[in-house]
Design a binder for these strands. Structure first.
Lengths: 147, 147
DNA sequence: TCCATTTATATGCAATTGCATCTAGTGTGT
DNA sequence: ACACACTAGATGCAATTGCATATAAATGGA
């Protein structure tokens, strides 16, 4: 139980502030354009990348570090809107397989330009290319599967 | 509207993931000890640092990048618990002055060891001292008052 | 095979958040 | 002093989150 150094505490505090600031920028822009919240995009992208058979909810959960009950309901909403299709898993009776629909793909594509501009405004505009790389590398260490 | 580079997008994505992971660690530990959520600590600390006359809600809001309505209600809860005292602002009829109470100070002190250990686990354990400094510096750029 | 444990996902209910808007002061220009 | 735009803060209501727990199927033994 070593106590954190001053710079670790500062890093944590700034992680919170930076995240809050950037997230607010992104969510506000999406909303202003009448688009769904960020999490929808993230799930759709993950599913699109996941490829053919689809992904299990628990895989999404691990990849995106979402709380299980939040993901469950997020999928409900995505399904209601017709962006995602749930089918029973062939090999696991408890589970399901998630697939992005054509409508879901279209929505993801539609969101991207707005999201991209927001990311640039919230993050890119503040960093040089090399700073962005360094930041990405350091942040990855905070949730690396294993240290 | 330049599009963000690949590394900027990665930095943003990882900012989200890292924040989610670290926050979950911190909040879980606080909860496990029966302590109030993180935001309470942050407000109490800010008020304690703010010193004698106290702070106006809008000052807190700017410092912590909180949404106005969230802060308003967070203060309600803190006041209900007796951790914070609201008094009418002398020089601005619309406003109020917030002060931390003795009980609030005591709670802040009580939270700190748990919070500190959580920060170390969530952040410090993953970074060298120099990495922590670099990370803190880079994150600060993302919400700098002016670029 | 049977039982206990664990894993995958859902859900009722309370607390919090977000949105939109409201009220009440402030400040400025005339 | 008046009209108007702006700032500080609160709040009703709907949506989301968090918590605790439920259900059902898989898994690992004995």
């Amino acid at each position: 139980m070593t106590s954190p150094s001053e710079s670790v505490v500062r890093a944590w505090t700034r992680l919170e502030r930076a995240h809050r600031a950037a997230l607010a920028t992104v969510e506000n822009r999406l909303k202003k354009e009448g688009l769904p919240p960020l999490a929808w995009y993230d799930v759709l992208l993950e599913l699109e990348r996941g490829g053919a058979p689809g992904l299990r909810p628990f895989e999404l959960q691990k990849a995106m570090l979402f709380a299980q009950y939040n993901l469950s309901r997020l999928i409900d909403r995505l399904e209601t809107q017709g962006y995602v299709a749930r089918t029973a898993s062939a090999d696991d009776g408890r589970g399901q397989m998630l697939a992005i629909t054509a409508k879901g793909r279209a929505m993801r594509k539609k969101i991207w330009p707005v999201y991209a501009a927001a990311i640039e405004a919230a993050v890119g505009a503040h960093l040089s290319p090399s700073e962005a790389r360094t930041l990405a590398d350091l942040l990855a260490k905070l949730y690396a599967p294993r240290s």
